[in-house]
Design a protein around this nucleic acid. Sequence first.
DNA 1: ATAAAGCCGACAAGAATTGTCGGCTTTTAA
DNA 2: TTAAAAGCCGACAATTCTTGTCGGCTTTAT
Lengths: 128, 128
Amino acid sequence: MFKVSKKSQYGLRAMVYLAKKDSKEFFSLKDISGKESIPFDFLEKIMSELEKVKLVKAKKGIQGGYVLARNPERITAKDIVSALENTTAVDCSFCGKSKKCLTKNVWRKIDVAINKTLKSMTLSDLIS
Amino acid sequence: MFKVSKKSQYGLRAMVYLAKKDSKEFFSLKDISGKESIPFDFLEKIMSELEKVKLVKAKKGIQGGYVLARNPERITAKDIVSALENTTAVDCSFCGKSKKCLTKNVWRKIDVAINKTLKSMTLSDLIS
DNA sequence: ATAAAGCCGACAAGAATTGTCGGCTTTTAA
DNA sequence: TTAAAAGCCGACAATTCTTGTCGGCTTTAT
Ligand code: FES
Ligand code: FES
């Protein structure tokens, strides 16, 4: 519970890697997975998801790879994590039955705190 | 990821239930599990863990059950969740290899935010 | 003495996470 | 124009975590 998934760890590390380069150059999965010690096939899925939400651009073929889709200061940790996780913190099957639940507020506040924290950090912040 | 476990949901609900009663009376697993729709056997393990860290007192035999070990205003959501979960938010196998990791700060801040939030709410707050 | 409880350890089912594979398409460079 | 380098995609396998169950034991009030 509240444990950071490998997927998000890998995803954020890969994005920070690209942000550090800060160029129009494309970097391949092979390169990223090697430098960041991320399982190649797993990273492929991760980058594919990040591409679908337009955080990175992909190019096929020789000299292909990935590049950030926008400036590091316009990509937050939340953008990345939200793209990779089904981020519905509380999923309570009892909520329907209980008129006014005294515990829901706890989980809601945690949800808010997590999202606020994630939103407050951009890739640019992380590499500076 | 960052999903609230049933275990903590159940644990907190059970503790709030006891806090609402706010008496020296003992309430049985049967009672709590019935009123809060929590699987009996699962709740038994949960309460047993809460007893081990002295958040509740248990009494065996007829008329036995559980009661809060101290005042609701002296029990925080964090006390309860920490007792039930292995709460090491980040567990990164790459940390050893990377001299200075640019992403660790993200996870550390989230950890802080979660704990601060949990710590800020007592059972007494929740039932008022 | 008996019944109502909690205690404990083992274990089983289910779900989520993590990782792998094979074959496909696109792109570039020789 | 063809071969190699890359990304794309869907399926699936391994592992781990969560959730739940069970049987037998001990303690306690009546
Ligand atoms: S009833 Fe769903 S969180 Fe309380
Ligand atoms: S290397 Fe472990 S969190 Fe970055």
